[in-house]
Simulated scan of single mutants.
Amino acid sequence: MLGKLLIAAGMLATISLAATTLGKRRWEAGTKALRERIEAARLPVMPRTVDLDALDGLPAPVQRYFRTVLRQGMPMLASARMQHRGMFNMGSQEASWKPFESDQLVVTRRPGFDWDARIAMMPGLPVHVHDAYAAGEGVLHAALLGLVPLADMHGGAGIAQGELMRFLAEAAWYPTALLPGQGVRWEAVDAYQARATLADGPVSVTLQFRFNADGLIDTVQAEVRGRTVGKRIVPTPWQGRFWNYQTRSGMLVPLEGEVSWLTAEGALPYWRGTITAIEYQAAK
């Protein structure tokens, strides 16, 4: 009996290892193809250097932000590569926080990014996730072990808009992408807030940025963003919050953040993360 149990356990371990290896290979191939699409859509970044003298006419808190986080004449950013670790809330109603690690590629012009995450549902059973915006298309793909599909949404309209919102909100990590010469249009709200609008072809998004007393981005908020609840997409107010600003490549960028849905019952955080590494490619 013991021998049969040991044989069965060995077979299960072999099957699990084979599935993990196959899933990893398939996921990596999909990541490569997705990022090639993002790279193929690149456009030249112009101008190639930051000109703080060209900020006249922007809302006062936006001017203060750029003068705080950037330096005159520094290179504009063409892309960023970053790694995160943190916790992701897998529950739609009740909290179910799971640890994650991720690698993210961002291209600033044409806007594009791929967040490639591994969420530890339980030991040995990771969920792989692509949350991306590629050549005007939104992508949300999740698969257990990289093999068993849990979510697979691609396309324009609502999903593309939601992903372009994410690109715009996370530009606190690649701040030259927020300059008006990069397609962002700023509108004054008050002494500490301004609205930013970014269009990519037919996809256009507007977010409200709140700046703190130090001139840094504190929160970014959307009136509505598509929230997945079961098999439905529910328009829900959405907010990102940033803190722990540090100097990286001559810029002040936040290393920690939290993202929440703002429901009728209150804020429902679903992402809390820390940047563990970040590298930039300058415009050429």
Rank of each mutant, 00 (worst) to 15 (best):
M1Q: 12
M1V: 15
I7S: 04
A8C: 02
M11H: 03
L12A: 15
A13H: 08
A18R: 02
A18P: 01
W27T: 06
E28L: 13
A29W: 01
K32C: 09
R35K: 13
R42F: 02
R42I: 06
L43F: 04
L43R: 14
P44R: 00
P47Y: 11
T49F: 10
D51Q: 13
L52C: 06
G57I: 04
G57T: 07
V62S: 05
V62C: 12
Y65V: 00
R71A: 15
A78G: 14
A78I: 03
A78V: 07
M82D: 07
M82H: 00
Q83K: 15
H84I: 05
N89C: 11
P99V: 07
E101G: 03
D103W: 00
V107Q: 09
R109E: 14
R110E: 08
W115T: 01
A120R: 11
H128T: 03
D131E: 12
E137C: 02
V139W: 02
A142N: 06
L144A: 15
P149N: 04
L150S: 08
H154N: 14
G155I: 09
A160V: 06
E170M: 12
A171S: 15
A171C: 13
R185C: 05
R185L: 12
A188L: 09
Y192A: 09
A194I: 13
R195C: 01
A196M: 02
S204I: 03
L207P: 03
F211N: 07
D218F: 06
Q221G: 12
A222C: 10
R225Y: 11
R227E: 11
R227V: 05
T228C: 02
K231T: 08
R232C: 03
P235G: 10
G240H: 10
N244E: 14
Q246S: 10
S249Q: 07
L252R: 04
L252P: 02
L255D: 03
V259H: 05
V259F: 09
S260P: 00
G266N: 11
G266S: 09
G266D: 05
P269D: 07
G273D: 11
T274W: 06
T276L: 14
E279H: 11
